[in-house]
């Protein structure tokens, strides 16, 4: 297993590149809003979710990927069998 320092050294450029992709995509959306029309309601909701996802990345802890997955998921409805009559 690599040390934390080794992992960061190995992955830094790739993380940098991925962050730039996200930044450029957000810039593209903003440019289009300025030049054409604002986001419609559904798209604005998706845009807000991206902001919230970015906030999750800034939190401390070993399970950011799991937190993001849960954030992008529908909630578990424990009474689904009763509701579906199965």
């Amino acid at each position: 297993m690599h040390t934390a320092t080794q992992i960061l050294e190995n992955e830094f450029l790739e993380v940098r590149a991925k962050l730039l992709e996200v930044a450029a995509t957000l810039d593209r959306i903003d440019r289009s809003v300025a030049e054409s029309a604002p986001l419609d309601t559904g798209a604005q909701s998706s845009r807000n979710r991206v902001d919230e996802a970015i906030r999750i990345l800034l939190e401390e802890g070993p399970d950011r990927a799991e937190q993001l997955q849960r954030f992008f998921s529908h909630e578990y409805e424990k009474d689904w069998r009763r509701d579906m009559e199965i």
Partner: peptide
């Protein structure tokens, strides 16, 4: 897939 995976997996496990 995607946003349906968590609920669907829990249903399957149930």
């Amino acid at each position: 897939h995607l946003e349906d995976k968590y609920q669907g997996t829990r249903m399957i496990l149930d």
